[in-house]
Design a protein around this nucleic acid. Structure first.
Lengths: 141, 141
DNA sequence: CTTGACTCTAGACCTAGATCAAGGGTCTAG
DNA sequence: CTAGACCCTTGATCTAGGTCTAGAGTCAAG
């Protein structure tokens, strides 16, 4: 509803986007945000678009995208037609890597749980299955 | 079966434990491995205990323990009686944090999957639910 | 004895994603 | 005009867990 190119300072943008000032400058260096206009004094001068972009970055980060991947998404999303397919593909890849990570954690969880179940929680370290499993003299090679 | 204190070079230990040489020296600096004996030449001189300890570290790492936690486990495991309870507690804490991480990933997965399902994979970026969700003009505050 | 593989130390460098400090200029309310 | 808040740049620092380099010394086979 509000699209006039108001002039926001970096502090105002930070507050609106919920991101620290340092992080905004960091994203600019990293190419995630375009270089903003400057006032005569050298102050960065932003509009609402920058705020939206920062929110986009924050949400993508929450979904587990790396900054590299986000840079990629941002580029794709501006292809206007044609980018959508690629964006969906990135999302699918992200989903697959999340699934892989979950599976890995489940496997680890499984091993750990078995050890805990087998451990009496007292007695000699020699008989503690957790310590024994970790030490495991002769591993399969 | 083989417990004589043979004198192993760092390279031999590295090979037997499946760990890079640099990493062994790094663990020594970090207090995960005791300082080994030295030959007259200054070469580190190890026995099988060091190999076992490195394997312990490797397995614990595979279970998702941080080096800090492993340092802790190693200290506990040598308490001989009494440490076992604490070891089990650490394992339970580890399990809980793995569960938390899995739950978080499931939540993220869920959000991502919904977006993908809603995305036709073509058309205008304006209508791509993935991009729309990431941009989401007015977030709940 | 020579050669090549191995080891030593100190310290720099790497990823990812920021975060902070120093030293200085700018803006605005009063 | 001044005080305090805000902004600028450059470059250092942090976490975690290593990895690599340079330059020098050592070991063992032939």
């Amino acid at each position: 509803m509000n699209t006039q190119p108001a002039s926001l300072t970096i502090g105002a943008v930070a507050k609106r986007a919920g991101v620290p000032i340092d992080t905004i400058r960091f994203y600019e260096r990293e190419g995630l945000l375009p270089e903003p206009l400057r006032r005569a004094s050298g102050y960065r001068s932003y509009n609402e678009t920058a705020v939206a972009r920062l929110r986009f970055i924050r949400r993508a980060k929450d979904l587990g995208f790396s900054l590299d991947e986000i840079r990629d998404l941002l580029a794709l999303s501006s292809y206007r037609r044609g980018g959508v397919k690629a964006v969906r593909k990135r999302a699918e890849q992200r989903l697959a890597s999340i699934d892989a990570r979950i599976a890995e954690l489940m496997r680890i969880r499984q091993g750990l749980e078995q050890l805990i179940e087998a451990c009496p929680g007292k007695g000699d370290p020699e008989h503690c299955p957790i310590l024994r499993a970790l030490s495991d003299e002769e591993p399969q090679v």
